[in-house]
């Protein structure tokens, strides 16, 4: 199969059909149209394709390497989307603390009772790992690539290229931050407002950059999914990005300051 496919890429001039030249200088002004190579052009598709059509299209139309590229691309976006969705659910659950420490504790206890956290945590970690592996395929991993990216950023200073660079850097940093966060949170179950407040008030230098980066990374990531797949117009996506980022940061700020207040109160 692959041999035949290669053949298709070879460009060949058609054979010389040797048509007669048109009638000479006959002077009547009406010359016959002949001698041009209208037929026998190499515009035809190669035979295997036609035969395939005749045989009811039994030839595989798509090769595996490109199939994987497509599916990995889909998976990259889906894993990112999944993580972003998780982040916003997480944020929603946490915001229960705004109604008071008891409501958050109740929610924590609820999750604990039905082992929801135990079920979710491995899935989340898997998703995170998958996302890391998938995005690394496109990220500038070699020094040469990083140097080229830096040069391009300095030279052209294009906003979306900058945001992508931010994704790369924040992504790398988040890998560290998220691991620490997951470790501390999951080794200290059940989730209780007091414990969280305690952590936040002690490790504020950790939480502030973490929150900023995670919100930034998720919102920019969603924006990039939207424009890459053409789900929103450019302007719409920008608007959505700014609005989402503002809401998420405000909420996170409220949550963190509440925790800090709770922690300080102890």
């Amino acid at each position: 199969m692959s041999g035949r496919r290669k053949e298709k890429r070879v460009m060949r001039a058609p054979e010389y059909l040797g048509q007669p030249r048109y009638a000479g200088d006959d002077g009547d002004g009406h010359r016959p149209v002949s001698g041009f190579m209208f037929q026998g052009q190499a515009t035809s598709l190669p035979l295997p394709r036609e035969q395939a059509a005749a045989l009811g299209r039994r030839l595989p139309l798509v090769t595996w390497p490109s199939l994987t590229a497509a599916m990995l691309e889909l998976a990259t976006s889906i894993s990112g989307l999944g993580l972003a969705v998780f982040l916003f659910i997480h944020m929603g659950l946490l915001s229960s603390v705004l109604l008071g420490a008891q409501s958050m504790d109740a929610l924590g206890a609820f999750l604990e009772r039905y082992y929801l956290l135990h079920a979710m945590a491995p899935l989340l970690i898997l998703l995170l790992l998958a996302h890391v592996l998938l995005v690394t395929r496109k990220a500038p991993t070699t020094f040469r690539q990083q140097w080229i990216l830096m040069r391009q950023l300095r030279r052209i200073g294009h906003l979306d290229t900058w945001t992508w660079a931010f994704q790369v850097v924040s992504g790398a940093a988040l890998l560290v931050f998220a691991s620490i966060h997951l470790w501390t949170a999951l080794t200290d179950l059940p989730i209780e407002a007091v414990k969280s407040a305690d952590r936040v008030s002690t490790y504020l230098w950790f939480d502030i950059p973490f929150v900023l980066m995670v919100v930034g990374h998720a919102c920019v990531g969603l924006y990039r999914i939207a424009v890459k797949w053409g789900l929103l117009s450019r302007r719409g996506a920008y608007g959505a990005l700014v609005a989402l980022m503002a809401v998420a940061l405000a909420l996170e700020f409220a949550i963190v300051s509440t925790f800090y207040g709770l922690g300080g109160g102890l």
Binding site: R5, L45, L61, V62, T63, P65, S66, L67, A69, A70, L72, E73, R137, K138, I156, H158, D160, T161, W164, R224, V227, K228, R234
Partner: peptide, 28 residues
């Protein structure tokens, strides 16, 4: 008359459309 599959072969790869990470500098 190329089918989706034919086009896929040419650009459905990491050198083609899936190599694009959506920086949009081309557009801008």
């Amino acid at each position: 008359q190329r089918t989706d599959g034919d086009f896929f072969e040419v650009v459905g790869t990491d050198e083609g459309v899936f190599g694009c990470v959506g920086l949009l500098a081309c557009h801008d």
